[in-house]
Design a protein around this nucleic acid. Structure first.
Length: 332
DNA sequence: TAGTTCGCGCGTCATAGTAC
DNA sequence: GTACTATGACGCGCGAACTA
């Protein structure tokens, strides 16, 4: 995986290099992991800058210090780095706050500004995956191009959005596509695209649309006469929706939402605002789920990276020990 | 067995960043 | 400039583990 080159210098220092130089700096946590406490490793501050070779001072138990130059090369923008930077920023803020408290002044706005540096898990992980082969990329949001909406965010621009009594949203797009978003469902199942079929014998003026339910319950039929009203029949496990003329008699308990194109009264405006808010909350709900999923993936990636780097670190320390035995003159 | 603690996931809000 | 997205923060509920 990595090619390591170690050279013994005349002055006793050892120069080592890795041909795969994507590794981030790792400081051995002696005693906290499985790495034996062979040596105490400290990284010289002058060598940690971007682009400059790192100089590692390895202090041996005998008190001898070995300069290891470039064992781990230039810091790369890996997944390890960004959170560290973030942590440092937070720590800096904490110190700043201490000093500020001593003065009685805390600039909360400035603190928020600095704290607001947020990592994009997808970007970071994809950067890592481009650096290190084998690390899976987080899927890009391709659903918009591929037309398979994973969430309401990819919904086609609807001409009308209706809300049912159970909180479900039905969007009728210009092409006749009907999308149903169930706030209680999860992710991909939250939005279901419908296609017009015009088959069978619909009621006069109505078009039967069907969609294949993901729960393998079969299909459901929707009557779309081009009117303003969507009716959900609350009967049993399988919901049924009807779009009727507003004047049609509605089943008891059915709640309707007005078409956005016909808002006049303040009450209708308020309903529209409520509908928009519900839609926004639903989108954000899905976004939060997705964000948490990405974050978990990111953390998993970090953990595996740490495991790899620990093994690498252990290997290097063992190699240093071997070289120390070779290089140090035998006194007896 | 009831009460407590802990970890996890979820929903919501606020807001920086981005797209249009 | 506005709408939308991504994400940190917060509070809440739930189930598992623990304890008296």
């Amino acid at each position: 995986m990595t090619m390591e080159t170690v050279e013994s210098q005349h002055d006793g220092s050892i120069t080592a290099s890795l041909t795969e130089s994507k590794s981030a700096h790792v400081q051995t946590q002696t005693g906290q992991n499985s790495i034996p406490a062979l040596a105490q490793v400290s990284v010289a501050g002058s060598g940690t800058g971007r682009g400059s070779p790192a100089v590692t001072l390895v202090q041996l138990p005998s008190g001898q210090t070995i300069h290891v130059q470039g064992v781990i090369q230039t810091p790369q923008p890996s997944v390890i780095q960004s959170p560290q930077i973030h942590t440092v920023q937070v720590a800096t803020i904490a110190e700043t706050d201490e000093s500020a408290e001593s003065e009685g002044v805390i600039d909360s706005h400035k603190r928020r500004e600095i704290l607001s540096r947020r990592p994009s898990y997808r970007k970071i992980l994809n950067e890592l995956s481009s650096d290190v082969p084998g690390v899976p990329k987080i899927e890009e949001e391709r659903s918009e191009e591929e037309g398979t909406p994973p969430s309401i965010a990819t919904m086609a621009v609807p001409t009308s959005i209706y809300q049912t009594s159970t909180g479900q949203y039905i969007a009728i797009a210009q092409g006749g596509t009907i999308q149903i978003s169930n706030p209680g469902s999860d992710g991909v199942q939250g939005l279901q695209a419908l296609t017009m079929t015009n088959s069978g014998a619909p009621p006069p003026g109505a078009t039967i649309v069907q969609y294949a339910a993901q729960s393998a319950d079969g299909t459901q039929q929707f009557f779309v006469p081009g009117s303003q009203v969507v009716v959900q029949a609350a009967t049993g496990d399988m919901p049924a929706y009807q779009i009727r003329a507003p004047t049609a008699a509605l089943p008891q308990g059915v709640v309707m939402a007005a078409s956005p194109g016909s808002l006049h009264s303040p009450q209708q405006l308020a309903e529209e605002a409520t509908r928009k808010r519900e839609l926004r909350l639903m989108k954000n709900r899905e976004a939060a789920k997705e964000c948490r999923r990405r974050k978990k993936e990111y953390v998993k990636c970090l953990e595996s990276r740490v495991a790899v780097l620990e093994v690498q670190n252990k290997k290097l320390i063992e190699e240093l020990e071997t070289l120390k035995d070779i290089c140090s003159p035998k006194t007896d």
